[in-house]
Simulated scan of single mutants.
Amino acid sequence: MTDLDKIDRAILRVLEADGALNAAKVGEIVGLSQPAAYRRIKRLEAEGVIKGRALIVDPTRLGYGVTVFLGVKLAPRGRAGVEDFERAVIAIPEVQLVQHVLGVYDYRLKVIAKDLEDFERILRRRIMTLPAVGDIESNVLLSEEL
């Protein structure tokens, strides 16, 4: 575990709010010089505290108006079924997130679709036909706050 001081935590808050900021701007916000902020950011990256910076795309601007979270329970087929499922599910472009979880379901998926009709097509033709799929529960996203 990495020990973080008050400045490190401030840097993380600033970068979580806007990962595109450069070291000079981060330093200005947290009260450090550009070189000091740069060194701290690089150390946090080297220690794995900062794993990367992400681009957030608005799927509605790309024509995807529906987001659905799926709980997927696999049928009991052993380890080979799990590996086949994982390999197949990550190949579906509309599946934006695959999480292996502990609980009622084995996997949680985030799926985007143009509309509900498109989602039904994705569900029936692509997800329900995946290897080892058992039960599926769908939750349609109504709103989201960042």
Rank of each mutant, 00 (worst) to 15 (best):
M1T: 11
T2E: 13
T2A: 14
D3R: 10
D5W: 02
D5Q: 02
K6I: 05
I7A: 10
R9Y: 03
R9E: 11
A10V: 00
L12A: 10
L12D: 08
L12N: 08
V14E: 03
L15W: 11
D18Q: 02
G19F: 06
A20K: 15
L21R: 10
A23G: 10
K25D: 13
K25G: 03
V26S: 06
G27I: 04
G27V: 05
E28C: 06
I29H: 04
I29G: 06
G31C: 12
L32R: 11
L32S: 09
L32A: 08
Q34K: 15
P35M: 04
P35N: 04
A36W: 01
A36L: 10
A37P: 11
Y38A: 12
Y38H: 11
R40F: 06
R40I: 09
K42R: 15
K42M: 14
R43T: 14
L44S: 06
L44I: 04
E45C: 09
A46K: 14
G48F: 02
I50M: 09
L55C: 04
I56H: 00
V57Q: 04
D58M: 10
P59C: 05
T60G: 00
L62R: 12
Y64V: 00
G65S: 05
T67N: 00
T67Q: 02
T67L: 00
F69Y: 13
F69H: 09
L70E: 04
G71T: 02
V72C: 07
K73I: 13
A75H: 01
R77M: 15
R77Y: 13
R77P: 03
G78Q: 09
G78K: 09
R79Y: 01
G81Q: 05
E83G: 00
D84K: 10
E86P: 00
V89D: 06
V89G: 03
V89Q: 02
A91S: 08
I92G: 14
I92D: 12
P93W: 02
E94G: 15
E94F: 12
V95Q: 14
Q96V: 06
Q96E: 11
L97Q: 14
L97R: 13
V98D: 06
Q99S: 15
H100P: 08
H100L: 14
L102G: 09
D106Y: 10
D106V: 13
D106P: 10
Y107K: 10
Y107H: 12
Y107A: 13
L109G: 05
L109Q: 07
L109Y: 09
K110V: 13
I112Q: 00
L116G: 13
E117M: 12
D118N: 15
L123I: 05
R124L: 07
R124S: 10
R125V: 03
I127E: 07
I127M: 07
T129S: 01
L130W: 02
G134L: 02
I136W: 01
S138I: 08
S138V: 11
V140M: 01
V140I: 03
L141V: 07
L141C: 04
S143E: 11
E144T: 11
L146E: 01
